[in-house]
Design a protein around this nucleic acid. Structure first.
Lengths: 145, 145
DNA sequence: CCAAACTGGTTTCATTTGTAACCATTGAAA
DNA sequence: TTTCAATGGTTACAAATGAAACCAGTTTGG
């Protein structure tokens, strides 16, 4: 009889990995500032790019528009970001971090980098290379579809 | 000023990948039988191993006990699985697929395998090798901690 | 023996999520 | 123009999730 070994099934393995890593990393922004993942991504996106619209944010960080909308609303409530209307298109809002938001971002960046560094430190050169090219290959395959 | 490039950040990339793959694969069991992911994993686990307790299921498929509990309840409601009491420990229940459950499992296995095969077919030999060893390396690192 | 700690599993409640409907505005077509 | 489709963004509602409390039943240590 034909069976499927869940532990070897790629979709399951990927999900499990991502879940473990993400769960671990979420402690960084959850413990520190009580952020959700969408909020962290929004903060991170705006910190990185300076100004973005909600749609752009969604594209950059792979979030559904409702997630973006709610994350933006929450960060606005905290006064971590500001909306400014677009001159030409009144549907669009440009989002920017406030001083407070930027401060939080600046505080988070080193923590995020440290997390990634420590994660990667567990591997040897060739393992690390395999991880990087494997992930890159998967990304290529999934985008070009 | 120090910024973090979200698109290159490993936790984000992993999550994004897993999410995309998992979302795509979920169509297989959702469209076909209206299963949730925990339900699919439960079906898959029992199909693979024959009989398991809820706790074992949780360990095998990396699910929180509440997820297992709810998935089991739903599959039982559909009469896809049966519980039998343990002789020695009355807290424990042994779970087994019924004929109907097994039929559904047998139907799903080839679809799952096809999905994985088609996913991997997008890569060349060395890309595939990188993916496999990269994933394996990550798993090692995360379990041994 | 018996209380206390522990374990398998369920339930409750608050939070997060996804889908779809929605509002306002804009662009294109007639 | 007027109308109709498309777009940026929000909201409403239902379903999925996680944390913690919970209810057996079991083990352990005094």
């Amino acid at each position: 009889m034909d069976i499927l070994e869940l532990e070897s099934f790629l979709p399951y393995r990927l999900y499990r990995l991502a879940d473990a890593v993400s769960r671990e990393f979420s402690k960084v922004y959850k413990d520190r500032h009580g952020l959700t993942r969408p909020e962290w991504r929004t903060l991170s996106g705006l910190g990185q790019r300076g100004t973005m619209t909600a749609t752009e944010l969604g594209e950059q960080s792979a979030m559904h528009k409702t997630k973006v909308s709610r994350a933006v609303a929450e960060l606005e409530r905290r006064r971590w970001l500001m909306r400014t209307a677009d001159e030409n298109d009144r549907r669009v809002e440009h989002l920017t971090l406030t001083k407070t938001g930027l401060a939080a971002y600046r505080e988070m960046v080193p923590l995020a980098k440290a997390f990634e560094r420590e994660l990667l430190a567990k591997f040897g050169v060739d393992e690390r290379a395999a991880i990087m090219s494997g992930v890159a290959a998967l990304e290529m395959a999934l985008e070009g579809k």
